[in-house]
Amino acid sequence: MKELKEIIGNNISLLRKQNDMTQQELAEELAYSDKSISKWERGEASPDIEVLVKISELFQISIDSLLSENTLDEQQISDKKKQGQIKANKIIITCLSISAIWLIATVLFITGKFFNNKLNWPIFIWAIPLSCVLLLIFNCIWGKKTLICFIVSLIVWSLISCFHLQFLLNTGYNIWYIYFLGIPLQVAAILWHILIKTSKRNK
Protein backbone atom coordinates (compact mmCIF):
# COMPACT_ATOMS: atom_id res chain seq x y z
CA MET A 1 0.00 0.00 0.00
CA LYS A 2 1.30 3.43 -0.90
CA GLU A 3 2.23 5.91 1.79
CA LEU A 4 -0.10 8.86 2.30
CA LYS A 5 2.54 11.32 1.06
CA GLU A 6 2.89 9.40 -2.20
CA ILE A 7 -0.90 9.22 -2.68
CA ILE A 8 -1.27 12.96 -2.10
CA GLY A 9 1.65 13.64 -4.44
CA ASN A 10 0.17 11.51 -7.23
CA ASN A 11 -3.21 13.20 -6.83
CA ILE A 12 -1.71 16.70 -6.91
CA SER A 13 0.28 15.82 -10.04
CA LEU A 14 -2.81 14.35 -11.70
CA LEU A 15 -4.98 17.37 -10.88
CA ARG A 16 -2.33 19.79 -12.08
CA LYS A 17 -1.93 18.00 -15.41
CA GLN A 18 -5.69 17.67 -15.88
CA ASN A 19 -5.96 21.45 -15.59
CA ASP A 20 -3.03 22.11 -17.95
CA MET A 21 -0.98 23.81 -15.24
CA THR A 22 2.77 23.83 -14.79
CA GLN A 23 4.35 23.38 -11.38
CA GLN A 24 5.23 27.08 -11.42
CA GLU A 25 1.64 28.11 -12.12
CA LEU A 26 0.30 25.89 -9.34
CA ALA A 27 2.96 27.27 -7.00
CA GLU A 28 1.81 30.82 -7.73
CA GLU A 29 -1.82 29.88 -7.05
CA LEU A 30 -0.87 28.37 -3.68
CA ALA A 31 1.74 31.05 -2.82
CA TYR A 32 4.49 28.44 -2.59
CA SER A 33 7.64 27.70 -4.57
CA ASP A 34 7.73 25.32 -7.52
CA LYS A 35 10.34 23.32 -5.57
CA SER A 36 7.72 22.61 -2.91
CA ILE A 37 5.26 21.42 -5.57
CA SER A 38 7.94 19.14 -7.01
CA LYS A 39 8.66 17.62 -3.58
CA TRP A 40 4.97 17.03 -2.93
CA GLU A 41 4.46 15.31 -6.27
CA ARG A 42 7.48 13.07 -5.73
CA GLY A 43 6.19 12.08 -2.30
CA GLU A 44 9.23 13.54 -0.52
CA ALA A 45 7.04 15.88 1.53
CA SER A 46 3.37 16.60 2.01
CA PRO A 47 1.49 19.91 2.23
CA ASP A 48 -0.08 20.97 5.51
CA ILE A 49 -3.83 20.98 6.06
CA GLU A 50 -4.24 24.64 5.02
CA VAL A 51 -2.62 23.94 1.66
CA LEU A 52 -4.74 20.81 1.19
CA VAL A 53 -7.83 22.96 1.70
CA LYS A 54 -6.54 25.46 -0.90
CA ILE A 55 -5.87 22.65 -3.37
CA SER A 56 -9.33 21.16 -2.84
CA GLU A 57 -10.93 24.58 -3.39
CA LEU A 58 -8.76 25.34 -6.41
CA PHE A 59 -9.62 22.08 -8.19
CA GLN A 60 -13.13 21.82 -6.69
CA ILE A 61 -12.72 18.39 -5.12
CA SER A 62 -13.14 17.08 -1.59
CA ILE A 63 -10.16 16.62 0.72
CA ASP A 64 -11.16 12.93 1.04
CA SER A 65 -10.64 12.50 -2.71
CA LEU A 66 -7.27 14.20 -2.41
CA LEU A 67 -6.21 11.74 0.30
CA SER A 68 -7.64 8.62 -1.35
CA GLU A 69 -5.90 6.33 -3.82
CA ASN A 70 -7.46 5.75 -7.28
CA THR A 71 -10.42 8.05 -6.54
CA LEU A 72 -9.22 10.68 -8.96
CA ASP A 73 -8.41 8.11 -11.65
CA GLU A 74 -12.05 7.03 -11.71
CA GLN A 75 -13.22 10.61 -12.11
CA GLN A 76 -10.50 11.65 -14.55
CA ILE A 77 -12.49 11.36 -17.79
CA SER A 78 -15.64 13.10 -16.56
CA ASP A 79 -13.69 15.80 -14.71
CA LYS A 80 -11.54 16.50 -17.75
CA LYS A 81 -14.65 17.00 -19.88
CA LYS A 82 -16.15 19.33 -17.29
CA GLN A 83 -12.94 21.33 -17.00
CA GLY A 84 -12.72 21.59 -20.78
CA GLN A 85 -16.29 22.87 -20.98
CA ILE A 86 -15.70 25.39 -18.18
CA LYS A 87 -12.53 26.62 -19.87
CA ALA A 88 -14.35 26.98 -23.20
CA ASN A 89 -17.18 28.92 -21.53
CA LYS A 90 -14.68 31.31 -19.92
CA ILE A 91 -13.04 31.97 -23.28
CA ILE A 92 -16.43 32.57 -24.92
CA ILE A 93 -17.53 34.98 -22.17
CA THR A 94 -14.25 36.90 -22.44
CA CYS A 95 -14.49 37.14 -26.23
CA LEU A 96 -18.15 38.22 -26.11
CA SER A 97 -17.37 40.93 -23.56
CA ILE A 98 -14.50 42.31 -25.63
CA SER A 99 -16.66 42.11 -28.75
CA ALA A 100 -19.26 44.24 -26.95
CA ILE A 101 -16.67 47.02 -26.56
CA TRP A 102 -15.95 46.99 -30.29
CA LEU A 103 -19.66 46.87 -31.08
CA ILE A 104 -20.22 49.99 -28.97
CA ALA A 105 -17.26 51.67 -30.67
CA THR A 106 -18.73 50.83 -34.08
CA VAL A 107 -22.15 52.21 -33.10
CA LEU A 108 -20.57 55.45 -31.86
CA PHE A 109 -18.54 55.68 -35.07
CA ILE A 110 -21.63 55.29 -37.27
CA THR A 111 -23.66 57.67 -35.08
CA GLY A 112 -20.96 60.33 -35.31
CA LYS A 113 -20.86 60.01 -39.08
CA PHE A 114 -24.66 60.20 -39.36
CA PHE A 115 -25.24 63.23 -37.10
CA ASN A 116 -21.98 65.20 -37.33
CA ASN A 117 -20.68 64.00 -40.70
CA LYS A 118 -17.38 63.20 -38.99
CA LEU A 119 -15.38 60.02 -39.07
CA ASN A 120 -14.63 59.48 -35.39
CA TRP A 121 -12.15 56.70 -36.07
CA PRO A 122 -10.12 57.44 -32.86
CA ILE A 123 -12.95 55.66 -31.04
CA PHE A 124 -11.47 52.39 -32.28
CA ILE A 125 -8.06 53.36 -30.90
CA TRP A 126 -9.54 53.89 -27.43
CA ALA A 127 -11.27 50.51 -27.70
CA ILE A 128 -7.85 48.82 -27.57
CA PRO A 129 -6.89 49.79 -23.97
CA LEU A 130 -10.50 49.26 -22.85
CA SER A 131 -10.35 45.73 -24.26
CA CYS A 132 -7.05 45.16 -22.45
CA VAL A 133 -8.54 46.36 -19.15
CA LEU A 134 -11.46 43.97 -19.56
CA LEU A 135 -9.04 41.17 -20.41
CA LEU A 136 -7.06 41.98 -17.26
CA ILE A 137 -10.21 41.78 -15.13
CA PHE A 138 -11.21 38.39 -16.50
CA ASN A 139 -7.63 37.14 -16.24
CA CYS A 140 -7.49 38.14 -12.55
CA ILE A 141 -10.76 36.30 -11.93
CA TRP A 142 -10.04 33.01 -13.65
CA GLY A 143 -6.98 33.32 -15.87
CA LYS A 144 -3.29 32.60 -15.46
CA LYS A 145 -1.58 35.05 -13.13
CA THR A 146 1.58 34.83 -15.24
CA LEU A 147 -0.16 36.86 -17.98
CA ILE A 148 -0.95 39.84 -15.75
CA CYS A 149 2.40 41.57 -16.37
CA PHE A 150 1.99 41.19 -20.14
CA ILE A 151 -1.58 42.55 -20.11
CA VAL A 152 -0.60 45.49 -17.89
CA SER A 153 2.16 46.30 -20.39
CA LEU A 154 -0.40 46.31 -23.20
CA ILE A 155 -2.61 48.69 -21.22
CA VAL A 156 0.27 51.09 -20.50
CA TRP A 157 1.53 51.37 -24.08
CA SER A 158 -1.92 51.40 -25.70
CA LEU A 159 -3.08 54.21 -23.38
CA ILE A 160 0.02 56.28 -24.14
CA SER A 161 -0.54 55.71 -27.87
CA CYS A 162 -4.16 56.83 -27.52
CA PHE A 163 -3.22 60.06 -25.75
CA HIS A 164 -0.49 60.72 -28.32
CA LEU A 165 -2.74 60.23 -31.36
CA GLN A 166 -5.70 62.06 -29.81
CA PHE A 167 -3.54 65.07 -28.93
CA LEU A 168 -2.02 65.03 -32.42
CA LEU A 169 -5.47 65.02 -34.04
CA ASN A 170 -6.88 67.76 -31.80
CA THR A 171 -3.92 70.16 -31.82
CA GLY A 172 -1.66 69.03 -34.64
CA TYR A 173 1.23 68.98 -32.17
CA ASN A 174 3.31 65.81 -32.00
CA ILE A 175 4.11 65.00 -28.37
CA TRP A 176 6.14 61.89 -29.26
CA TYR A 177 8.15 62.22 -26.04
CA ILE A 178 5.11 61.08 -24.06
CA TYR A 179 6.28 57.54 -24.79
CA PHE A 180 9.12 58.08 -22.32
CA LEU A 181 6.45 57.86 -19.60
CA GLY A 182 5.95 54.24 -20.56
CA ILE A 183 9.52 53.27 -19.69
CA PRO A 184 9.31 53.72 -15.88
CA LEU A 185 5.78 52.29 -15.89
CA GLN A 186 6.97 49.23 -17.81
CA VAL A 187 9.95 48.78 -15.48
CA ALA A 188 7.65 49.13 -12.46
CA ALA A 189 5.31 46.45 -13.84
CA ILE A 190 8.21 44.04 -14.44
CA LEU A 191 9.75 44.67 -11.00
CA TRP A 192 6.36 44.21 -9.34
CA HIS A 193 5.91 40.89 -11.16
CA ILE A 194 9.41 39.73 -10.13
CA LEU A 195 8.80 40.82 -6.52
CA ILE A 196 5.57 38.82 -6.32
CA LYS A 197 7.22 35.71 -7.79
CA THR A 198 10.23 36.03 -5.47
CA SER A 199 8.10 36.45 -2.35
CA LYS A 200 6.11 33.33 -3.25
CA ARG A 201 9.23 31.26 -3.88
CA ASN A 202 10.61 32.19 -0.46
CA LYS A 203 7.58 30.76 1.31
Rank of each mutant, 00 (worst) to 15 (best):
M1V: 12
K2R: 06
E3T: 02
L4T: 10
E6M: 07
G9N: 02
N10D: 03
N11Y: 02
N11D: 01
D20C: 07
Q23C: 09
Q24D: 14
Q24S: 12
Q24T: 15
Q24C: 05
E25R: 01
E28N: 08
E28A: 08
L30N: 06
A31V: 06
D34S: 03
D34F: 01
R42W: 00
I49R: 03
L52Y: 06
S56Y: 01
L58M: 11
F59I: 10
Q60F: 03
S62D: 10
S62N: 04
S62G: 06
I63M: 01
L66H: 00
L66Q: 00
L67R: 00
S68C: 07
N70R: 14
L72G: 02
D73A: 14
I77C: 03
I77F: 04
S78F: 04
D79L: 08
K81I: 15
K82H: 06
I86Y: 15
K87V: 08
I91Q: 11
I92F: 12
I92L: 15
T94N: 14
L96Q: 13
S97N: 07
I98T: 14
I98G: 05
I101A: 05
I104M: 11
T106H: 10
V107M: 13
F109Y: 14
F109W: 08
I110F: 15
T111P: 03
K113D: 09
K113G: 05
F114R: 11
N116P: 03
N116W: 13
K118S: 05
N120E: 09
W121F: 14
F124E: 05
I125G: 09
I125W: 04
I125C: 10
I128K: 01
L130W: 13
S131L: 03
C132I: 10
V133M: 09
L136Y: 03
W142T: 10
K144W: 05
I148P: 06
I148E: 10
F150W: 11
I151Q: 10
S153T: 12
I155P: 07
W157D: 12
S158C: 12
L159D: 09
S161I: 15
H164R: 13
F167R: 07
L168G: 08
N170T: 11
N170V: 10
N174I: 03
I175H: 12
W176M: 06
Y177H: 09
Y177R: 07
Y179W: 14
P184G: 08
Q186T: 14
I190R: 01
L191S: 05
L191K: 15
L191P: 00
H193F: 08
H193P: 02
L195S: 05
I196F: 09
T198N: 12
S199T: 10
S199V: 06
S199R: 15
K200P: 05
R201S: 13
N202D: 08
N202L: 12
K203F: 09
